[in-house]
């Protein structure tokens, strides 16, 4: 199984200014990424880009599956307002 730190590191190398959190393992491994780079991108395109970073591991099975929540800072802010639960950007918990 791929190390969580390695996964986060790889995301950060492509999204340097992003907030990246990870949780779970194996079949419910989840990535939360908040990055400006997603602005103007469809959900599907965001997923393709992020999952594309792990194409080899996903095909050779060292990474079983990956859930990706990819938002822009504005979308995250809106989600926070909507859920009126005040989570600051760096304390995202699952």
């Amino acid at each position: 199984m791929m190390e969580e730190a390695v996964i986060i590191e790889r995301v950060k190398s492509s999204y340097p200014k992003a907030v990246v959190e990870a949780a779970g393992e194996d079949c419910n491994f989840q990535l939360f990424i908040i990055a400006d780079a997603f602005d103007g991108q469809s959900l599907l395109q965001r997923q393709k880009d992020v999952l594309g970073l792990f194409k080899d591991e996903l095909s050779n099975g060292s990474l079983h599956a990956l859930s990706v929540t990819a938002k822009t800072p504005a979308e995250q802010e809106k989600a926070i307002q909507a859920s009126n639960v005040h989570i600051s950007l760096d304390e995202i918990t699952v």
Partner: peptide, 28 residues
Amino acid sequence: LKEYADFPTFPQLYIKGELIGGSDIILA
């Protein structure tokens, strides 16, 4: 399918032949 859709994981939902996405997108 992974090649056809350029999407490396499953599940994959298609509506009228078009890839909609995986579980994250379906739930969203």
